[in-house]
Design a protein around this nucleic acid. Structure first.
Length: 565
RNA sequence: GGCCCCGUCGUCUAGCCUGGUUCAGGACACUACCCUUUCACGGUAGGUACAUGGGUUCGAAUCCCAUCGGGGUCACCA
C-alpha cells in the first residue's frame, strides 16, 4: 500500500495541505504501507526549489516523515529516497518529462491523443464567447480526428508537431459515462459528453497536472489517493486517462474542504486583507503611522491594487499586529506546537468517534494514536471552518501539559529560531532561574510567542523598562502616595531574606500585608509589581522576584522610589 | 449558468449505514458565579442545533423525494 502527498512547490505549505499530508501518512502507517512525497513542479514559471525546501521543512517540523521521495538532509539540502530497486528514479516531475513523453507518443499512435495547433488566444476567445452566451465551453474536437485511429491525418499532425510546430497534445475523451469510485463520497457518476478533449501536454513540453499525476501514480505504485474535494472534478479525467493507458485506478477518497470562519477560502490574501484594514485604521488616526513602509508600495497596497504579502508583513510589523495564520510556517513562527496543529487539524473532517473513560468524546490525541486509528471510513463529507480559537485552546492545553523543564527548552528552541534577540537574553539566565520563569509563564501562555509578553520584565535590564504612568498613579501615588510609602517600608525586609525563592518571597509579602491589616496582599503587591516591571500586570510576584534575583529586585525598587522622590 | 458534492449548537463534531435506549452527547467560544496579589490558570452552573416541506412507518436527526441554502469545478495552475 502506498499513499502520497504531492504538493506543487509554489509557496509555503498550506494548513489544508498539512492535513492531507498527515492523513496520507497516518493511513500508510496504520496499514504498514509506504508514504511518499512527490513534487509537482511542471509549472516551470511558478515552481521553485526554495518552496520545495520550505514544504519539506514544514512537514518535518510536523513530524511527518516520508518513506519515498525527497527529504531534507541535516545540511539543508534535498535528497531523495527510492524503492530498493530504484524503479522510480526521481520524484520531481519536471525531471521526468521523457517518461511522460513516451506515454504521450503511445497514446497518439493509438489515436487516443492528438496534437492541436490552435493558439492560446484563439481558444481563449472562443471560451469567452461561450461564456457570454451562458454556455459551457468544450473544446470542439477537429473533424479529422478519428478516435482510436492513427491515420494519415493524425500522422500528418504528429509530423507537424515533431517538426517543432507549436502545439499542445489533447486527450481523446471517451464517449461513455465515467464512474469515479470514491471511498468517502461513494461512486460519483459523470454523464457521457461532460468531458472534452483536455490538454495533457502543454506547448512548453511539460505534461499537465492531469497527465503527470496519472502516469506517476501508476509508475510509483500509488494505491490510495486522499486529497481535498476541490480535486473531485478532476478525477473523471484521471480515470479516463487510466483506462486509456490500461492502468489500474487507485482508491480515491476526497476530503472535505477547510474554510475561514466567515466562509471564505483560506488564502494568502487573508493576510493582505487584515493588514489593509489595520493600516487604513492606523492611517486614519495618524497619517504618519506607517512611515516605515515605502510610500509607493503602501499606496498601491491600500488601494487594493495588489496583495503583496511582504507589504502586509511590513505593515504588521510596524503596527505590531498579528496577521492571520494560513500556512504552517505562520503557525510555527507564532509559537504554535506541531502536536497541537496535528491534533486540531486531524479533527477537521475526521473524528475517531471514541469516548474517554469519563464518557466524553475523545478529541485529544497524538500522531501515534492517529497512525493507529485513522481510516477513510470516518472521514466526513461536510466542509469545515477553521476555528482559530479552538486551535489556540488546544495549543494552550499542550503547553499546560508540559513540565517546566520541557516548556523552558521548547520555548528557548523556538526563540532561537524566531526571536534571536530575546533568545540571547533568556538563554543567558541560569537554569534554576529559567525554570522559575517557566513556571511563572507557562500558565499564562497559549503559544510560545505569548510567553514573551509577560516575560518583558526580564528582557530589559534594571534601568531599561518604562513606568506606565496610569499604573504608577493608581498604585503608587494615589491616596497621598500610600503605595510608595508601603513600598519604602517593605524594601528593607527583602535584604535579609534567605532562601530567596518564590515561596519565601510570597510568604514575605503575605506576612507584611497581614501585619499591616490589609484585607488582601494587593495593597503591597501592586506597588511592588509596578516598581519591578513598570506595569500593573505581571506573573506572580514570588516568581517575578525570584527570577530577578535579590540585587535586581532591590535595584528596581530603588530606581522606582528615586524616580518618585 | 452546466456538472458535481454537501446540509446536527456561533464553530469543530458524536449519533445516521444497522429507525425506538437521544424533547440529541462532547469540545471550543460565550454568559454568570467561585477562587485570586495584577494578568492568567483553575472550579461550578447555564443558554444555544437535527435547513424547510412532503412522504414511508406504530415510531425518523436517522430511510425516500422535493425545495431552499452552502460549497467545489469548469486553464496550455496544480
Amino acid at each position: 500500500m502506498v499513499t502520497r502527498f504531492a504538493p506543487s512547490p509554489t509557496g509555503h505549505l498550506h494548513i489544508g495541505g498539512a492535513r492531507t499530508a498527515l492523513f496520507c501518512w497516518a493511513f500508510a502507517r496504520r496499514h504498514g504501507g509506504k508514504f511518499m512525497i512527490r513534487i509537482e513542479d511542471t509549472d516551470a514559471a511558478r515552481s521553485s526549489l526554495e518552496s520545495a525546501r520550505g514544504i519539506l521543512s514544514d512537514l518535518a517540523w510536523l513530524g511527518i516523515e516520508n518513506d519515498l521521495g525527497p527529504y531534507l538532509t541535516p545540511e539543508g539540502t534535498i535528497a531523495e529516497r527510492d524503492w530498493p530497486d530504484g524503479r522510480v528514479g526521481t520524484y520531481f516531475q519536471a525531471r521526468r518529462v521523457e517518461i511522460y513523453n513516451q506515454y504521450i507518443e503511445r497514446l497518439v499512435r493509438q489515436g487516443r491523443a492528438y496534437p492541436a495547433f490552435e493558439s492560446n488566444e484563439e481558444i481563449e476567445s472562443q471560451r469567452k464567447a461561450a461564456m457570454a452566451a451562458k454556455q459551457t465551453y468544450r473544446y470542439p474536437r477537429p473533424a479529422e480526428v478519428r478516435p482510436g485511429l492513427f491515420d494519415d491525418a493524425m500522422a500528418s499532425r504528429w509530423a507537424r508537431a515533431c517538426a517543432g510546430e507549436r502545439h499542445v497534445i489533447r486527450f481523446v475523451a471517451p464517449p461513455g459515462e465515467i464512474i469515479v469510485p470514491d471511498q468517502v463520497l461513494g461512486d460519483v457518476r459523470i454523464a457521457p459528453g461532460e468531458l472534452d478533449d483536455f490538454v495533457i501536454r502543454k506547448a512548453d513540453g511539460f505534461p499537465t497536472y492531469h497527465f503527470a499525476v496519472v502516469i506517476d501514480d501508476e509508475l510509483m505504485g500509488v494505491t490510495h489517493v486522499l486529497r481535498a474535494q476541490e480535486h473531485l472534478a478532476n478525477t473523471p479525467r484521471h480515470v479516463a486517462l487510466q483506462q486509456a493507458l490500461g492502468f489500474r485506478t487507485p482508491i480515491y477518497g476526497h476530503m472535505p474542504l477547510i474554510f475561514n470562519t466567515d466562509g471564505t477560502k483560506m488564502s494568502k490574501r487573508d493576510k493582505a486583507k487584515a493588514a489593509r484594514k489595520a493600516a487604513k485604521d492606523a492611517v486614519a488616526k495618524n497619517a504618519g503611522a506607517l512611515a516605515a513602509v515605502e510610500p509607493g508600495a503602501l499606496a498601491s497596497f491600500l488601494a487594493g491594487e495588489n496583495d503583496s504579502v511582504e507589504t502586509a508583513e511590513t505593515i504588521a510589523g510596524a503596527l505590531k499586529i498579528v496577521l492571520p495564520e494560513i500556512e504552517v510556517w505562520d503557525f510555527r513562527r507564532n509559537g504554535y506546537l506541531p502536536e497541537a496543529i496535528n491534533n486540531f487539524v486531524s479533527l477537521l473532517g475526521w473524528n475517531p468517534g471514541m469516548k474517554q473513560a469519563d464518557g466524553k468524546d475523545l478529541e485529544k490525541f497524538d500522531t501515534a494514536f492517529l497512525c493507529q486509528h485513522f481510516g477513510i471510513d470516518r472521514i466526513g463529507k461536510t466542509n469545515s471552518k477553521f476555528d482559530r480559537a479552538k486551535l489556540l485552546s488546544f495549543n494552550a492545553d499542550f503547553i499546560g501539559a508540559m513540565t517546566d523543564e520541557q516548556f523552558a527548552d521548547r520555548w528557548l528552541g523556538w526563540m532561537r529560531e524566531h526571536e534571536p534577540e530575546a533568545a540571547a537574553v533568556i538563554g543567558a539566565i541560569p537554569r534554576d532561574r529559567l525554570l522559575i520563569l517557566a513556571r511563572a509563564l507557562r500558565p499564562r501562555a497559549k503559544t510560545l510567542r505569548d510567553a514573551l509578553r509577560p516575560a518583558a520584565f526580564v528582557l530589559t535590564d534594571d534601568a531599561g523598562y518604562a513606568f506606565d504612568p496610569a499604573a504608577v498613579e493608581k498604585n503608587l501615588l494615589a491616596s497621598d502616595r500610600a503605595g510608595t510609602k508601603l513600598l519604602a517600608e517593605f524594601r528593607p525586609r527583602l535584604g535579609g531574606l534567605d532562601p530567596w525563592t518564590p515561596e519565601t518571597l510570597t510568604a514575605l509579602v503575605d506576612a507584611f500585608a497581614k501585619e499591616k491589616g490589609m484585607p488582601n496582599p494587593g495593597g503591597i503587591a501592586q506597588p511592588l509589581r509596578v516598581a519591578l516591571t513598570g506595569t500593573g500586570v505581571s506573573p506572580g510576584l514570588g516568581e517575578t522576584m525570584a527570577v530577578l534575583g535579590r540585587s535586581s529586585t532591590l535595584a528596581r525598587i530603588d530606581r522606582c522610589l528615586d524616580s518618585l522622590a
